[in-house]
Design a protein around this nucleic acid. Structure first.
Lengths: 237, 237
DNA sequence: CGCGGAATTGATGGCGCTCAAGCCACGTGG
DNA sequence: CCACGTGGCTTGAGCGCCATCAATTCCGCG
């Protein structure tokens, strides 16, 4: 299942068969998490990192009087906490947004793998750079996009990322979040998320029923979002 | 001058004398940029990367009808566009916020260096992870902090980062930006930045005169900002 | 059927935006 | 020396987006 990770890089990065095998071998036991269960607590130190292979997980930080902000959403093929490998101490928590399964990469094994293959280290480095790109785009969203644009942009992004790892179905994908969680992703209030959603529905850009997002009008949605997929290093669709 | 880069990691990461020498050798000619001159244009491909050695630079993205959002501020010791090394195409612009000098690291030389020393590749990887941490904290700021908290937090962050590379003087540091630029960093309007600044001044938390920020009350400023410096992987002050 | 969590809708208020005007410092040229 | 232009800062008025609070309604599930 960790193959999803490799899908993200498509033809941009090819490993030799041995590297590929070595990479896949680094992943150990599979663990299952309930919705809302934390995979990793903020402040902890770990001897392994988690890669999501199914479901959605998210990083979050808490502020005083209960405010919460998600800083990243992880889909299949994403490392949730590679930070713990390099920086030794997590400064955010990771929680399961949906029932979610992860495989672990033991840090010592990862270390050995990297020493054998600088190529794989480069691949992991590239992955964190891609993450950084996404963070930056979120900064743009929160700073300069309207609530509608922000939501539209997130939906475009998730669609593209899920498509890369083959978790979409035509123009729709599973998104079993609550509106509260979406609010904490977007930096909005739950009530306003509701209204913005209804606006996108009214304009026939997308629907969200039974926990499934269906994009009704990709062109218009991308226009409202001012979505430029370059930052995902993707060149499809 | 690229030594500033190494300061950031303090004792967390030590290179052997040879690695250190090799690392420093990779940097070539020094280039000087005027205020508001672009070091790198969005969309370009480069054969080298820029490390800031003096002044301030910033990444930005533009949206329709003139909106601009800075996604990162770079101080001495920061790579402005390491992205071009791994991803080949810049998806943001980099501009000089102040007169600014940079040294270039040729990609081919960088490549050779990395092949010799996985340790250095690890160091660079760590640097982009640190960047990602900062981006994430910005997301938290923009999503869940008030305008006052946001500005306070930025000042705390800049102070710590500049201190690490020895660009502070007691509790003050040079920050020769305009309020417009600050607005595009914080995702606020210029008018509101002005008001928020005057509030911090009124509360005697900081002053900003002659392009110098002076923190008058670190404790209170950090409290208003809810500043937790862990994300900078710094353990001083 | 009844419960509880989530979604929706309405009312109200405030933070932060826009527009507009005025101020100040600085440089330039008559 | 003054007139003028320019760029940045400051302040006020008014408004709108989005938050908060409070009801209801919807829906899945025991």
């Amino acid at each position: 299942m960790p193959e999803a990770f490799l899908h993200k890089f498509q033809d941009r990065f090819v490993l030799s068969p041995e590297e590929r095998a070595g990479f896949l071998r680094v992943f150990g036991r599979e663990r299952r998490f309930e919705m809302r269960q934390d995979l990793v607590a903020s402040g902890s130190s770990l001897s392994y990192s988690n890669m999501i292979v199914d479901g959605l997980a998210a990083r979050y930080k808490l502020l005083s009087n209960g405010r919460r902000q998600f800083t990243a959403i992880h889909v299949a093929g994403d490392f949730a906490d590679l930070q713990s490998f390099l920086l030794h101490r997590m400064e955010y928590g990771v929680t399961a947004l949906t029932p979610c399964t992860a495989v672990t990469a033991d840090h010592e094994a990862l270390q050995r793998l990297i020493e054998e293959s600088g190529n794989i280290q480069r691949l992991l480095w590239m992955d964190t750079m891609l993450e950084a790109s996404i963070h930056q785009e979120w900064v743009v969203s929160m700073g300069r996009r309207s609530a509608v644009g922000r939501l539209a942009h997130l939906m475009c992004e998730l669609f593209m990322r899920l498509k890369l790892v083959r978790r979409t179905d035509d123009l729709s994908f599973k998104l079993p979040l609550t509106q509260l969680e979406l609010a904490d992703v977007l930096g909005l209030s739950i009530v306003h998320v509701n209204r913005v959603l209804s606006e996108l529905r009214r304009e026939r850009l997308l629907t969200w029923t039974n926990h499934v997002i269906r994009i009704e009008d990709w062109e218009k949605l991308a226009e409202v979002a001012e979505f430029q997929p370059d930052y995902l290093s993707v060149h499809i669709l």
